[in-house]
């Protein structure tokens, strides 16, 4: 029901700053949406999400990257070769990196398996940070690593729902990065995440006559019409570039 309401009124957009993606989405991600960015490793999820944050920071929207698997020091050193990146964004606190293990540590979330109460504590802490730093864009890389510690569908559902609600009420547009194996027939490891997220962007590798192409496809996006076609992307110092996948069926 809510979905229809959202569709009837044009929602404010959060332009990703990635021209190709904004074109696909008719201007950007509807503000406050929580998007599942999903794909196997090496498909460019982290790079794309970082660019989303850098553009946000450049547009004066405070942006937060929560790194679960890789240390954020490494990320800042290795993954920002963009021409448009400015070191000062980090110094000024426009672009903030936080390591999830530190959040776990500080909150005493040391159990291998989180309880429902732990989920609440974690979501509240992320909400606190978003409030304190006036965060408008958030990336969690990856949500799959968090889900490993949630284990049950019930808790994963609870986590995604709560984090989505916490972020959307704060007007924070978020990308949750999800790792799947290339052969998976669904968009998330547990199948739960995809049903709850406001949007799904699928990134993958496609083989065509022996060539391997990196692809991107917006599978679902609440609050906007969008192309569902596959696009081919390239990770360049000018950012992520997208062109439509050629079909070659034409004639």
């Amino acid at each position: 029901m809510d979905e229809n309401k959202n569709n009837s009124v044009e929602r404010e957009r959060c332009p990703t700053g990635i021209d190709g993606l904004d074109n696909i989405l008719n201007g950007g991600i509807p503000r406050g949406n929580t998007i599942l960015f999903t794909g196997s490793c090496g498909t460019g999820k982290t790079t794309l999400s970082l660019e989303f944050l850098v553009h946000g920071a450049l547009a004066d929207e405070n942006s937060l990257f929560i790194s679960v698997t890789e240390s954020s020091d490494k990320l800042t050193q290795n993954v920002i070769p963009y021409d448009f990146f400015e070191e000062s964004l980090i110094k000024k606190g426009k672009l903030v990196f936080v390591d999830m293990p530190i959040i776990y540590e500080r909150l005493g979330l040391t159990n291998v398996e989180f309880s429902l109460e732990d989920v609440d504590i974690l979501v509240r802490a992320i909400g606190n940070l978003v409030d304190e730093l006036s965060i408008k864009r958030l990336v969690i890389d990856s949500i799959t690593s968090v889900c490993y510690r949630l284990k049950t569908e019930e808790k994963i559902r609870e986590f995604i729902l709560k984090i989505g609600k916490t972020l959307s009420t704060r007007g924070c547009t978020s990308m949750l990065i999800s790792e799947i194996s290339p052969s998976a027939d669904r968009y998330s490891l547990y199948g739960v995440e995809e049903a709850i997220a406001d949007g799904i962007v699928l990134m993958g590798n496609m083989e065509r006559r022996g060539d391997l192409l990196r692809t991107l496809q917006v599978v679902k996006m609440r609050g906007t019409t969008h192309s569902r076609a596959k696009y081919v992307l390239d990770l360049t110092p000018a950012g992520v570039l997208l062109v439509p996948l050629l079909k070659g069926g034409g004639g």
Binding site: S71, D99, I103, R106, L107, N128
Partner: peptide, 17 residues
């Protein structure tokens, strides 16, 4: 304390991986 009063950025910055 962090659970009750909320986690602040400075609490995170004080800590190194």
């Amino acid at each position: 304390k962090y659970r009750q009063e909320g986690l602040k950025m400075r609490d995170i910055l004080q800590f190194k991986m």
